[in-house]
Design a protein around this nucleic acid. Structure first.
Lengths: 164, 164
DNA sequence: GACAAAACTGTTACACTATTACACTTTCAG
DNA sequence: CTGAAAGTGTAATAGTGTAACAGTTTTGTC
């Protein structure tokens, strides 16, 4: 499997690589699982990967409509459901929006950094953080089944931009 | 100021204490800040504190309507906005619902344990977790301004219940 | 290939969550 | 008392997500 996508908050980040890799991984994963990456599902995934700025369901819907796809809400929600189930995208609860998963295939919760200036999102893969979370929950006798960790703030690029 | 509310996932938890304390703290805080805890604001806070199960805006609205309050959406959203601003409640992004803040006055982000069996929510106040979060973000050059941490799973009481 | 089951898609309608805008009333400081 | 600020009432609407059902395509099996 190809390597994980480059982090969003990296200078010199070539986003075409992200898109290509994300699509290649999705095709491989679906083949491996005998799942069908149909045209509308594939297109939704592509649209989500067009940038690291998460898109809402109705933004996706509008773009699909422009391209001649069916444009009723269930179309996009079904595609999103499929992509979520296969771990190809994540839903950001704080934004009601969807972003590409940077490391599908490996089972993981998403930890997200959300820049409030440029709206880009970067996924963290921190086993350290995961341990801290589980530990705190365990102290309360709680068994964690799913986690939402979304950190909003200012990314390094926007920080240097506002420093000037 | 009275001590923080007892955690939700505690056996022998007397919830009347939670309600009384929450209201007393709210009154004190608003007095101290010259803010007005008007009847509708106060009633919304009470309704939210009726249990540790978070309530949606329209659930609150329905209860207000039953009691003869004005029952248009802005009524409850304004009350929620006020209570959020004063740190008296939290919004759970994963549920679109609102829950009482167990330690208002002290500035803090909320970390939440959400039981998927009984729907009760307990707030964590973990400086350890907070540090881990900031540290991970800092490694990516990111400055955190607000955090959403919501852990869903099974609380200790529901765990022992299902073990039997 | 024929067939039935499963998966996928199209369509309509609707439920739930939240906000805007504007008029009106109450409260409070000077 | 009076003007400004804060709070409330009301109607309309925007944004997000689901339910239900019919029709089509794909897939596995004989």
């Amino acid at each position: 499997m190809s390597p994980p996508c480059q982090p969003a908050f990296v200078t010199g980040h070539n986003h075409n690589h992200c898109i290509e890799q994300a699509l290649a991984r999705a095709v491989a994963l679906c083949k491996q699982r005998n799942s069908r990456l149909t045209p509308s599902r594939r297109r939704v995934l592509e649209l989500i990967w067009q940038s690291h700025q998460p898109l809402g369901a109705y933004q996706l819907l509008a773009q699909l409509a422009d391209e001649g796809f069916n444009s009723a809400p269930p179309t996009v929600y079904r595609a999103l459901e499929f992509l979520l189930e296969h771990g190809l995208i994540h839903r950001l609860a704080s934004l009601n929006a969807y972003t590409g998963c940077s490391g599908p295939g490996t089972q993981h919760s998403g930890y997200f950094l959300i820049c409030q200036r440029c709206n880009r999102v970067q996924e963290l893969a921190s086993s350290h953080l995961k341990e801290a979370v589980r530990e705190q929950a365990a102290q309360a006798g709680f068994v964690v089944e799913s986690e939402i960790i979304e950190l909003s703030g200012c990314c390094p690029q926007c920080r240097t931009a506002t420093d000037e």
